[in-house]
Design a protein around this nucleic acid. Structure first.
Lengths: 146, 146
DNA sequence: CTAAGTGCAAAAGGTTTGCGTCGTT
DNA sequence: AACGACGCAAACCTTTTGCACTTAG
């Protein structure tokens, strides 16, 4: 469904092409896991040094529109992009900033529930949940006792 | 727990004060529900026209640190701030951009699970879930049939 | 008097836009 | 020739920082 060939033809239908730059951006996102546009850019430039950051942004937008990559806002800074097939849930601690990744199985029930009650199809492939991690909760508890 | 008095004393312990500007920012966030720093600024300036956007950012940071407000990234643009007591889950459709709000009850099971399995205390008060809403799913299905 | 808080201007990200050029079809 | 894609530079928007001034304790 999202192999090289059908990707090419999807683009072709729209009068677009799979250029080397776009391929490099897609590869970079897949290899890096999560990466900011900046990081993707550096990676791509490792292979093709003249590729401009503007092209990175345009390619990321296109690839996202095609459903091949997705971006998420972890923390405060720039968003991070990752490949659609790279599935997991982020547990982001808003106290220490740590980000854990856990399986999307966790959300199966919630998914079912949302669909049944609201007709909403949750995209569980790339979700960020914020809260407090075990360490910070312990630290908080210790502080409380003082 | 978070009434005026204890807020004042919490700040006082840290050698800080509840200034008119900070109060206005907090009020604005509470009144606006979800608002970008920009929107908060305009609201505050309705009452005190000289307040600078820098002060808005600093106040929002402080209030967030105190746990009185929280920010979320809905969609692409600027983050939106809202008061901690304003509890709900956002269902954000990444196709049409609509944002629904539903009760946090939905997450009770997930909360329990996360805590038990990972020691992670989910902050369910202000969560954004992305996916596809009923309308867009129907539209997609119709398109598929063509 | 001291330190916190503010406003202002400038800097620093991060992202988008306009435009001239190049390569495909 | 026509159009999509690219690179470059500049514009833009949002957020942060440095600094001098004010003000509450």
């Amino acid at each position: 469904m999202s192999d090289q060939g059908s990707l090419r033809s999807t683009l072709h239908q729209r009068g677009m092409r799979m250029t080397p730059q776009r391929q490099l951006v897609l590869d970079a996102v897949r290899e890096l896991g999560h990466a900011t546009p900046e990081q993707v850019c550096r990676r791509v430039q490792g292979t093709a040094s003249t590729v401009n950051i503007t092209t990175i942004y345009r390619a990321l937008d296109l690839l996202e529109e095609l459903g091949l990559v997705r971006h998420t806002h972890l923390g405060h800074g720039a968003p991070t992009y990752s490949a659609e097939e790279h599935e997991h849930v982020h547990l982001a601690c808003h106290r220490c900033g740590t980000i854990d990744e856990v399986s999307t199985d966790l959300l199966d029930d919630l998914c079912r529930d949302l669909l049944a009650r609201f007709g909403f199809a949750l995209d569980a492939t790339h979700l960020a949940l914020s809260g407090t991690c075990r360490n910070c909760r312990n630290a908080d508890a210790a502080e409380e006792r003082r």
